[in-house]
Nucleic acid binder design. Structure first.
Length: 256
DNA sequence: GCGACAG
DNA sequence: ATCTTGTCGC
């Protein structure tokens, strides 16, 4: 279906990532990030893309803004988009970021008062081959604080699904427990977090932009009703719902 | 050739 | 990402 990406394009993308990497701010920049109860934080965003089953190009781009700490819906935007870049592990941002930025731009235009103070992104931030995953990319280009939350482990910089890793997961006792994901260099690139008491499979949290890792992990835990933090979960549910409503069984009975 | 491969 | 309902268990 989609042509394999040319080698020189990947090299261009790498350069772009290495250039933008320099702009990532991996410390807390907001007052609320320093507060034990995050007082001052009122709006958290979540973004996601959902696809129709056999279609790699058309997707629903979703933005939700929830109140904090209640996690009630304040704003939502669903928009059908046509993707141009293929999915290549390590380059997810080149596929998705343009449409996430557009959604934020529509919000800035329509309801700037509802702009989220932090955005949860479905994917990694600094926990990435070149320390510049989707959450960093969106953070730097939007200027907003961003947190990356991946549902699956990307094996990067010496972190792998070893027995040691499995043992560390097994040692996570309750919601909020975590352990560091340490690169071969010694740098902690992210943390595996048990997001709730009832989910034994962790999520992988890393810094996107303008937030420290410890704050990102603490905030993620505080936004979890289920395994996936509520802003991302809502974005996922609502974009799927949009597709079900507007493209019901798009593949059934097409052959007569 | 084999494994890895965020979404 | 997507294919997929009910079911077993705490």
């Amino acid at each position: 279906m989609s042509a394999p990406p040319a080698e020189d394009l990947l090299e261009e993308w790498k350069s772009e990532q290495e250039r933008l990497r320099q702009q990532v701010v991996e410390v807390d920049t907001e007052d609320w990030q320093r507060k034990p109860d995050f007082s001052g934080l009122q709006r958290v965003g979540g973004m996601d893309l959902s696809f129709i089953k056999g279609d790699d190009f058309n997707a629903c781009a979703q933005l939700v803004v929830l109140s904090y700490p209640d996690l009630k819906l304040l704003y939502e935007d669903s928009q059908m988009v046509t993707l141009t870049a293929p999915y290549v592990a390590g380059f997810l941002a080149f596929r998705e970021t343009p449409f996430l930025l557009e959604a934020l731009q529509r919000l800035r235009m329509k309801q700037p008062n509802l702009l989220p103070q932090v955005v949860f992104v479905d994917g990694n931030g600094l926990f990435h081959y070149r320390e510049f995953g989707l959450a960093c990319h969106l953070g730097v280009l939007s200027g907003l604080p961003c947190v990356g939350v991946a549902k699956n482990l990307l094996q990067v910089q010496g972190v792998h699904k070893s027995e040691e890793h499995q043992a560390q997961i097994a040692a996570l006792q309750k919601g909020g427990d975590s352990f560091p994901l340490t690169a071969a260099s010694g740098k902690v690139l992210g943390k595996a977090l048990r997001s709730s008491d009832s989910s034994s499979k962790p999520v992988y949290v890393s810094v996107g932009h303008r937030i420290s890792l410890d704050t990102a992990v603490r905030l993620t835990h505080s936004c979890c009703r289920y395994r996936v933090p509520e802003p991302i979960r809502q974005a996922d549910c609502r974009s799927r719902e949009y597709l079900r409503k507007h493209f019901p069984a798009a593949d059934a009975c097409t052959k007569e």
